[in-house]
Simulated assay, not measured.
Amino acid sequence: MTMILYGISNCDTVKKARRWLDEQGVAYRFHDVRKDGLDAARLQGWIDALGWEKLLNKAGTTFRKLPDAEKEGLDATAAKVLMLGQPAMIRRPVVEADGDISVGFSADDWRARFAA
């Protein structure tokens, strides 16, 4: 299984997820979407699989700091532009493993999916 964990290195949830994977001995590759970038095609694949509403982190500081005009009337196209421009707006971590895409971290869910 080739797992890629996408996130931001200083994100607490990403740190928890990486720590959990390390403790379980699960091999993965980390991709920092802020430092390493994120291409539009990959983000579109995530949107197609999960929906932009699930990917866009409206509770995060970056989104909350946006002017109200940018927050109102969001659709898939506008959300994609926001997430590409400011990857911190993407809910984290996004995990690609065995052709499956998921977002967020839950030790219980991950134990069922990834633990050997």
Rank of each mutant, 00 (worst) to 15 (best):
A112T: 15
K65H: 10
F114W: 15
G51S: 07
N57V: 14
T2H: 15
K71N: 05
P67S: 01
K80N: 00
A79I: 00
E23Y: 02
F30G: 09
E72Q: 14
F63S: 04
L55A: 08
P93N: 02
M1S: 08
K71A: 03
V26Y: 02
L55G: 05
P93H: 04
M3K: 06
K58H: 08
E72A: 14
G99K: 13
K54E: 15
G25M: 05
I4C: 07
L5W: 01
F63N: 07
N10R: 08
I90Y: 03
R18I: 09
G51E: 09
F63E: 09
Y28F: 12
A116P: 11
D36C: 10
D100H: 09
I90P: 01
A17T: 08
A116T: 10
A59W: 10
D108Q: 15
V103C: 08
D22H: 03
E70S: 13
D39M: 00
G85T: 08
E72T: 14
A97V: 14
A107P: 15
S106G: 13
H31Q: 13
D32T: 05
Y28P: 02
L55I: 10
D75A: 03
K58W: 10
K15W: 03
I90V: 12
A49D: 14
A49F: 09
F114I: 13
R29K: 15
V95P: 00
A27H: 14
S102Q: 09
A17M: 01
D22M: 02
A116H: 10
M3R: 06
Y6C: 00
L38W: 05
E23I: 03
K54L: 14
N57T: 15
D68R: 07
D68L: 05
P93Y: 07
L38E: 02
L38A: 06
D108Y: 14
D100G: 05
Y6V: 01
W52H: 11
I4R: 14
S9P: 00
M83F: 05
D109F: 10
D48A: 13
L56Q: 06
E70I: 11
P67M: 06
N57A: 10
R113C: 05
E53L: 11
T13Q: 03
L38P: 01
R19F: 03
T13H: 11
M1Y: 11
A79E: 00
T61K: 13
D75G: 13
R34M: 06
A112V: 15
Q86V: 12
D75E: 07
L5H: 02
W52C: 13
D12A: 08
K58P: 14
D36Y: 07
R113F: 08
A115Q: 12
D39H: 07
T61H: 09
D22P: 04
D32K: 03
